[in-house]
Amino acid sequence: MSPAAVKDEILAFDRPEVVADRATHYCPGCHHGVAHRLVGELLTEMGLVDKTIMVTAIGCSVFLYNYLLLDAVEAPHGRAPAVATGVKRSRPDNFVFTYQGDGDLASIGLAEIVHCANRGERVSVVFVNNTVYGMTGGQMAPTTLIGQKTTTCPGGRCREREGMPIKMAEIIGGLGGTVFAARAALNNVKNIRQAKKFLKTAFEVQTKGLGFGFVELLSACPTNWKMSPVKANQRIETEMIPYFPLGIFKDLSGEGGVC
């Protein structure tokens, strides 16, 4: 499809080989594609493609093994950190990461992620937070913002009834086994570059054997937010980032890890 490069031109951007050359099932404007690409690019740059085992979760990203050409284990809903623990302990020379959404990680899998981080397992976690259960049709998630309308809180999430949205990066950052915990967004070029930097550090703390790395990526779900992709992108900036501040919440990568 793409015309070949002519003289005096350099290929400035192309798909990394590890990201499959096929159409994704994601809705227009869904940021899963960006997150997949960042992971694929980093694994390629760090030379980890051949030794990576990814543990995929339930949610829209359930077909991740179709899009990233890596060895994979599909975990039961929310149990990806527990499965990753087993994979990493039995194959300590392999690079192991999990890729989870907010319904998977912050709700049904809360115990698994907290204890995995607290034990300081040498795994990395990519957490995609779009404040809603995407695959099942837009139900309220633990991360749904106050006032946000979903199919299970049609009047908007109410603080008295449903409590406050859970801030995972801060929680994971407060645990003893965590070496790196950060939050980035995927809504503009600057934030995407920052997200890549955070992911790189999270992957490095594993390759150096330091401990647990966690990165939360704020992303859009235009379909379940009932917005156009461009509007959904703006909502990340105006509504999500004020409540979910971006930045690093714990970074011991320069201090030799947790044990």
Partner: peptide, 10 residues
Amino acid sequence: LICPDLAITV
């Protein structure tokens, strides 16, 4: 960088 579907080559 922002294209979620990797449809753009530069």
